[in-house]
């Protein structure tokens, strides 16, 4: 695909579970590249901004379409209910009830309604903020409390990607739909894990997801000195490169708890993360 030459890489950072150091890696990588963009897609609990400390320049509300029924026009024919895959609209007694929190906004009911009784309403699913910090372009999404539809919000955050610069995506933890929405169609996935049995188990699940999506990946082992060698053995077996090992370091932990990005507190880590970026670049180029 030729157009790829004109577009900069999109790198996603994911982990099978929370608390592995994913945000540390994503923020450190983004800050080390220079003129990059960081998009925090962990919309349930965005926290990259605590380290990047951007000056926010704007906030937008993200909505999803939901059906609005005009009871006067409705003939209670039930077509809307029949077409809805999500049980989000139902005719009951002498009315039509909608359940916005179940609605995927597909518009099927509106198209199916023979009486023209349905038009498009909106519901807020979250907000997107953007700003800048030290030459870094920063974007994050935050889901409305109680809202279940993370993927559409994540896609909206990703629509802010600037193709002229390298983009780093901080993906939500886990392996479910929101993760897929965050890492799908990125050029490379960095999987952050800890060398413990639990870490390995979650890593295996994450690797399966990444394989299905056919995205090249590499592993970063955080707190590499606390566990055993099984993550490294697994990586070798699966033929996935271990890109970096970060030993447990009290000073790093302290900087983290102060909300200070590791690469700002320790210049040697900035060099390592810049090197990480170069390695990812080579790995991606090698696959084309």
């Amino acid at each position: 695909m030729k157009y790829r030459n004109f577009k900069k890489m999109i790198i996603s950072v994911a982990s099978g579970k929370g608390g592995t150091g994913k945000t540390t890696v994503a923020t450190s990588l983004a800050l080390s590249i220079g003129g990059a963009q960081l998009l925090d897609c962990d919309v349930e609990a965005p926290n990259s901004h605590l380290f990047v400390r951007p000056v926010f320049e704007g906030e937008d509300t993200v909505t999803m379409p939901v059906p609005r029924v005009d009871e006067d026009k409705c003939t209670l024919c039930g077509e809307c209910e029949a077409i809805c895959q999500f049980n989000a609209i139902v005719t009951i007694a002498d009315t039509v009830m909608t359940f916005p929190e179940l609605c995927h906004g597909c518009g099927g009911c509106q198209a199916a309604c023979p009486a023209g009784a349905i038009d498009e309403g909106k519901r807020t699913i979250g907000t997107i903020q953007h700003g800048r910090s030290n030459g870094l372009d920063f974007v994050h999404g935050r889901i409305r409390i109680g809202e279940a539809m993370a993927p559409p919000l994540i896609r909206q955050v990703r629509s802010r990607i600037n193709l002229d610069v390298v983009a780093v995506i901080d993906a939500p933890p886990g392996t479910s739909c929101p993760v897929i929405a965050a890492i799908q169609d990125t050029d490379f996935v960095v999987l952050v894990t800890e060398p413990t049995p639990f870490g390995l188990n979650d890593l295996e699940l994450a690797v399966e997801t990444v394989k299905i999506l056919k995205i090249p990946s590499g592993i970063i082992i955080n707190r590499s000195d606390i566990g055993d060698g099984r993550v490294a053995e697994y990586a070798a077996r699966e033929n996935i490169p271990v890109l970096m090992e970060i030993p447990y370091d009290r000073k790093i932990a302290e900087a983290y708890s102060r909300g200070e990005p590791v690469v700002q507190a320790f210049p040697q880590w900035r060099r390592r993360f810049a090197g990480l970026y170069e390695e990812i670049e080579k790995l991606v180029a090698g696959r084309k």
């Binding site: 049980n87 005719t91 179940l102």
Partner: peptide
């Protein structure tokens, strides 16, 4: 086996 809204349909 409905992924969601089973209660709604049962009520219906």
């Amino acid at each position: 086996n409905a992924p969601q809204g089973a209660g709604i349909q049962a009520a219906k």
